[in-house]
């Protein structure tokens, strides 16, 4: 039987209460929401916090709303809510692509977007999704809030920019006109972590790629965005040739390791191929969005 080492449990009644507990209890306190990353790590003694602060009662952190040209997602929003939300799917189909292949329904009933991002696993699908979409993460401490771009939030395996007395409270995703997004993942079996995965988001302006976000998962400890792939796309027409150039750049940018899920060579091949596949679908979706906007008489 696997049981975590002993710890003390506190249930936070509000965000302020959680922050006060984090400050009082110090660096050996950890926030727990769904618990599907932290509790297994505690059973294996890979994590040994002295205190757990349960934030599951903070329902004011469980929301999805459009505000200020962004989709704002509360940190306690469950995977299942993201998967079932039409609002999320209509603006960011990449979320539904990814959520369909994250773990399984009972895990998705508990796991949260905030927990996924703060776990900062190099294989975390939502990290790649948020990086592709150029998310901004709102972190709150007792002194106030700060907004951190995804690229600065993720600091490497299991490390983020969140300080010991802070917590992630909101994820902000900019709404980009005429845009489309998609996620492609190869896994060994249903619900498994990725062998490799790629997310793509792009916008079309006058038939050319305006903005582009390419992010990879499970393809190296340091890789999230593939900057070279993004640069290869800017200003190009959304053609197979442009996608191939981006795929090659993503394969160059990544740094996979050989493990039980596959060889580094195979994963590098996947980085290329999955980037191309994600771009094809993202471009198709962007074209549909642009057509719909045109039909509605909006400016291109």
């Amino acid at each position: 039987m696997q049981v975590p080492a002993a710890f003390e449990y506190r249930r936070a009644s509000s965000v302020e209460d959680a922050l006060a507990l984090l400050e009082t209890l110090g660096e050996e306190a950890r926030v727990v929401a769904g618990g599907h990353s932290l509790l297994p790590m505690m059973k294996l003694r890979l994590a040994r916090p002295e205190y757990l602060i349960d934030i599951n009662d903070l329902s004011d952190l469980d929301y999805l709303r459009v505000e200020g040209g962004e989709l704002r997602v509360g940190a306690l929003t469950r995977h299942r809510s993201l998967l079932e939300s039409e609002l999320v799917g209509s603006h960011f189909p990449i979320f539904h692509d990814a959520e369909r292949v994250i773990a399984d329904p009972p895990v998705r009933n508990r796991g949260t977007i905030g927990g996924s991002l703060c776990q900062a696993d190099p294989s975390e699908d939502l990290s790649a999704v948020c990086a592709a979409l150029r998310a901004t993460l709102v972190v709150r401490g007792r002194g106030g809030t700060r907004a951190i771009p995804m690229a600065a939030f993720y600091r490497g395996p299991y490390e983020t920019a969140v300080g010991p007395a802070e917590m992630l409270v909101e994820i902000r995703l900019p709404l980009v006109p005429h845009s489309g997004s998609a996620y492609e993942k190869v896994e060994r079996k249903a619900g498994d972590w990725a062998v490799a995965a790629a997310g793509a988001a792009l916008s079309l302006h006058g038939g050319r790629i305006g903005q582009a976000g390419i992010a990879l998962a499970a393809l190296g400890a340091a890789t999230v965005n593939s900057v070279r792939a993004e640069q290869a796309l800017l200003g190009q027409e959304p053609t197979e040739q442009a996608f191939a150039a981006a795929g090659r750049a993503a394969a160059q940018d990544c740094d996979p390791v050989t493990d039980g899920r596959g060889s580094a060579e195979y994963k590098r091949h996947l980085a290329d191929e999955l980037t191309r596949r994600a771009l094809r679908r993202a471009a198709d979706r962007a074209a549909v969005a642009a057509l719909a906007a045109g039909a509605a008489g909006e400016d291109g």
């Binding site: 618990g35 599907h36 297994p40 329904p105 009972p106 508990r110």
Partner: peptide, 13 residues
């Protein structure tokens, strides 16, 4: 009312 894996939920939670 929703399925959860009870090996990964604390009794306290």
């Amino acid at each position: 009312g929703e399925p959860v894996k009870s090996c990964t939920v604390l009794a306290a939670m």
